[in-house]
Design a protein around this nucleic acid. Sequence first.
RNA 1: GGUCCCUUCGUCUAUCGGUUAGGACACCAGAUUUUCAUUCUGGGAAGAGGGGUUCGACUCCCCUAGGGACUACCA
Length: 469
Amino acid sequence: MTDRSAVVTRFAPSPTGDLHIGGARTALFNLLYARHTGGRFLIRVEDTDRERSTASAVQAIFDGLAWLGVAADAEPVFQHTRIDRHREVVAELLAKGRAYKDFTIAEELEAERAAARAEGRVVRSAWRDRDPAEGGDRPFVLRFKSPLEGETLVDDLVKGPVRFQNKELDDLVLLRTDDTPTYNLAVVADDHDMGVTHVIRGDDHLNNAARQTLIYQALGWTVPAFAHIPLIHGPDGAKLSKRHGAQAVGEFAGQGYLPEGMRNYLARLGWGHGDDEIFTDAQAAEWFDIADVVKAPARLDWAKLNFVNQQYMRHADDARLTEMVAAVHQSRDVTITEAGRARLAAAIPLVKEGAHTTLELADLTAFTLLSRPVVLDEKSRKRLDSETLARLGRLHDHLNSEAQWDAPSLEAALRKFAEIEGVGLGKFGGALRSTLSGAASAPDLASALTALGKAESLGRLGDALSQPA
RNA sequence: GGUCCCUUCGUCUAUCGGUUAGGACACCAGAUUUUCAUUCUGGGAAGAGGGGUUCGACUCCCCUAGGGACUACCA
């Protein structure tokens, strides 16, 4: 016998496409609530529609969840494998007189739908009260026999008590003509059998909750607690779609966001804990409560996502970032030699403070992978007049005599050189930058020199000196 | 059309009848600075509208407006 008091949550995606961030956030909330209560978090793939469900979509969802770091406490359940159980439940409903065979043909149904809409009422099948024997051997669906009177209360943990007049609730199809179960029947049966205590899902299901509640009651089952969380909208307030930049978690990964940054950002969308903005997974689990979930839909804000991700970039392990950034460079067809990789690794800790994403970090470190001689753009070339070149020649010798090749020492060396020359750093700083990184962006000079190393730095500087003016 | 949900700065949110309505991102200004960035300081910025209830409403109730979901033999 399982412990009835323990919380069991679940994420139940339908495998018809990629994992959207809305779904990812729903999964995260389910996980956090399970962690918060010491309960269990399960995953169930809602694939009763065999036509629309694809293996690649199932994989895409699992990949998305894995990347985000949202793992279930048990092997995922595939809804289509439970079809016999679903039929059994429908048979029980039929035996109890809470379901009926509906022989209505498509045209009749359509006419009834039009009539119902015109009269402002819900669709009702004529077969609700007819003798099924009259249907003969024609094809039929099995519908739930919804009560015509009274009201059904969905005591939602997020929205509060929501009342539905039963006459507004139509008779759901439970079993299709081909004897396969529909979503509304399958969720109820599966959530019950899996011992789900808290159904946390998108609020597009709030209306279904009433009808599902009726099915639970007809079966004499305990109705789980419902928590319908608002959807995530695009920056313009409209439903999130392709034109907003990204919607699948895989796209965010591709745009250089860290999974931990994504988790933090997503957790703050529709939920808050006082003034806390950046927090650990452990803190999120400790603080997360459905009672604190916001009722209104939240908009995706790229600027804030960037900020949050930047915070995580700073604390991310340098070796890991080097790995990720190297992959970005490779995807941009930049060849990375062994020496180049070392320069890249050296540059990462020096520039990562200013990067919001690994893509930006790749931009900031691109100068380390330039091949010699560094190509100068027009603006850089103009800076190198004869006076400046002469000065850079003396700087080359000055740096060559530098024994300590680290940022503090180089910083001091550059200032010393400026002092010797009797000019400000600005007099040759820009020119030196050009010889080191061309048109590519680079960090402050001391850091750039440090990342490149003595040999490469002096080599690039020398290249510029020997280039025809 | 019907049913249901939602509505605090541009955005994410705090407030759970009594606050100069707080924080964060973004934005603007200034400081730092060899580019960009970082960092620091300061600033502007909100209770959709209208009725109630109350000594007192962002907070409770009603109406309106504006968004959204559902209304499939999809999930």
